[in-house]
């Protein structure tokens, strides 16, 4: 099978869905002729024109609120691009409240069929407000779905599914993954929303990760294997809905859990996942759950400090050893 990058896979998903359904359109800053800050919308302006690939003012509230309004008014499927995930800070009302609550609050109508794509994560020297992973903010929200693909294959299949989904989907793409190459079918396929993927089977410990951290977890698991420790790596892929079945099955097998994410620890995804496992699988657990995450400080600019800040394979290995000792 041919190999393309994560960014190209996303581009292909957008292109295919826009060809398939003329209610799909793109809104964002510099998504037109420029092709998006990470090149994800490259060539779409030329193919679909300015009506469907809309360069917006620098107005994140209007991008997301406009998308919600267009969807609520009936039958449109906007895909919004935020230049960076950090900028959710200026459109939380539109995502968290409007997209997430307008269906329920209005008694079941309308469907808010929007996708909010947002590049997240540290890629070296971005500093505190250009490097964040803000998924925990939306984990606490209601009415949203949230996807975090780690491979080009999933990027295409999940984005296509997100666009077809009638619910609002927040779609986080890690900046360092855009250049990652992988096998991606040239034809139409979907990756089901809400299904995790077991990336490596193992029996001693379960490592739960998503987005870039999946690759760090696999790296850690391969090193651990050489040391005689069998780690199972689960790529969550979807944070809302969370694939509890796959998580619980693995926990029942290993009895030990490490959760790894790039965002800082306090109130992060690990807290929620750990709590659900404790509530539902307490008897299967052989010891406490460990969270491998960034410290609770803003992301530093200095690349040296940033490396110190970020979770990596080594820190995941430390986490695994910690849970195995207890």
């Amino acid at each position: 099978m041919r190999e393309i990058t994560y960014a190209e896979a996303l581009n292909e998903a957008l292109r295919e869905e826009m060809e398939r359904d003329d209610t799909v359109f793109i809104m964002g800053q510099d998504v037109g002729k420029f092709g998006g800050i990470f090149g994800v919308t490259k060539g779409l302006y030329e193919k679909f024109g300015q009506k469907r690939v809309r360069d917006t003012p620098l107005s994140e509230s209007a991008i997301i609120g406009g998308a919600v309004g267009a969807a609520a008014a009936g039958g449109m499927r906007p895909v919004c691009e935020l230049m960076l995930a950090d900028f959710v800070g200026v459109c939380v009302d539109e995502i968290y409240n409007k997209a997430g609550k307008w269906k329920y609050m209005h008694g079941g109508t309308p469907d808010i069929s929007i996708v909010v794509r947002a590049p997240m994560g540290a890629k070296g020297g971005g500093g505190s407000e250009h490097s964040q992973c803000p998924e925990a903010l939306f984990m606490h929200g209601t009415g949203l779905k949230m996807l975090v693909p780690s491979t080009p294959y999933d990027a295409k299949g999940l984005l296509k599914g997100a666009i077809r989904d009638n619910d609002p989907v927040v779609f986080f793409e890690h900046k360092l993954l855009y250049v990652l190459k992988g096998q991606v079918p040239a034809d139409d396929y979907l990756v089901p929303i809400g299904k995790a993927a077991v990336r490596k089977e193992g029996t001693d410990v379960t490592i739960l990760a998503y987005s870039l951290m999946v690759h760090k977890a696999i790296e850690a698991a391969l090193t651990l294997e050489e040391q005689g420790i069998s780690a199972e790596v689960i790529d969550l892929r979807s944070l809302i809905p969370l694939d509890l079945e796959t998580i619980f099955t693995s926990v029942a097998k290993t009895g030990r859990v490490v959760i790894a994410h790039e965002a800082n620890k306090r109130g992060g995804m690990g807290a929620e996942i750990s709590a659900v496992i404790s509530e539902q699988c307490f008897k299967e657990l052989k010891g406490p759950i460990a969270r491998v995450a960034a410290p609770d400080v803003p992301i530093p600019f200095s690349p040296d400090l940033e490396q110190l800040y970020l979770p990596n394979a080594e820190k995941i290995i430390t986490g695994v050893k910690l849970v195995l000792e207890k």
């Binding site: 009506k51 609120g65 309004g69 267009a70 039958g75 409240n97 209005h106």
Partner: peptide, 25 residues
């Protein structure tokens, strides 16, 4: 009747979106 924004002033962007929908259709 699309509704109101709980955060006062959240409705401007929603209205713009509804207008965008009409224009695109």
């Amino acid at each position: 009747v699309l509704g109101i924004s709980g955060s006062q002033g959240g409705n401007f962007v929603i209205a713009a979106g509804a207008g965008l929908r009409a224009k695109m259709k």
